[in-house]
């Protein structure tokens, strides 16, 4: 192993969160497919065993099913870090639930007119300061450098955030998120899902009555 460059680019919290969510969705979908194939195979095998009336085929067959779907198991480490990171990044004290790709891109573009460093811009995106005192912490020597533009920056940040998630009015981002989550719910709705079953059932439940109250419920799930 060789580290070519320890810091080749910076990532915002929002980017990491979307990446991890995507990864999680893929893993769920994959496990689902693997389970279904396995189930079909089992049924076929059971039928074969019945018709033959002997147990011999059974002994040979199970290893082959394992070999065909080896990708299904996701390493424990990845699952842990993925789960914990998603929890941290989507916690209600983080602004990520009120951000969207487009809004962040717009914010960064608008911030370009001020004399901010890359790191400062990244932190403005990550922390979404809406009060002067938060901005003071992020930008060094802010009074000399920004002067009167401080309020403009705060205003830009406020514009980039959608309404506070607790409001029942469905804004775009939340709507998308709801849909994304409920697709997951669909993907693994039917059969035997041991560990994630309880959560998924909830999601599926919400899905039937998609509308005002749903988002609040989903939020609670995420936390």
């Amino acid at each position: 192993m060789e580290v070519v460059s320890a810091r080749s680019a910076l990532l915002s919290n929002y980017e990491v969160l979307s990446l991890l969510r995507e990864l999680e969705a893929n893993q769920l979908a994959q496990t689902k497919i693997a389970l279904r194939v396995k189930k079909e195979e089992d049924e076929r095998m059971a039928a074969a065993a019945l018709s033959k009336g002997k147990g011999k085929e059974k002994e040979v067959a199970p290893p082959s099913t394992v070999l065909q779907h080896p990708i299904e198991e996701v390493s424990e480490n990845l699952r842990t870090v993925e789960f914990e990171a998603i929890q941290y990044l989507s916690a209600d004290y983080q602004p990520t639930s009120r951000q969207s790709d487009a809004a962040i891109a717009k914010l960064v573009k608008k911030l370009a007119q001020y004399d901010l460093t890359k790191a400062e811009k990244l932190q403005i995106v990550n922390l979404a300061p809406t009060q002067a005192v938060e901005l003071y912490v992020i930008v060094e020597e802010i009074e000399d450098r920004m002067g009167d533009h401080m309020d403009d920056v705060l205003q830009l940040v406020r514009e980039s955030l959608t309404a506070i998630p607790t409001s029942t009015q469905g804004d775009d981002v939340k709507e998308q998120k709801t849909n994304a989550t409920s697709t997951n719910g669909h993907l693994n709705d039917d059969e035997g899902w041991d560990d994630a079953e309880a959560d998924m059932d909830d999601v599926e439940y919400d899905d039937t009555g998609e509308g005002a109250g749903v988002e609040g419920d989903l939020e609670a799930d995420d936390d």
Partner: peptide, 21 residues
Amino acid sequence: MFVLSLIKDTVAIQPAYFAVP
């Protein structure tokens, strides 16, 4: 707080995983 690191490595893929892309 997150960065991208460029890393070079050699990985071995077990024959069991040859069917996977």
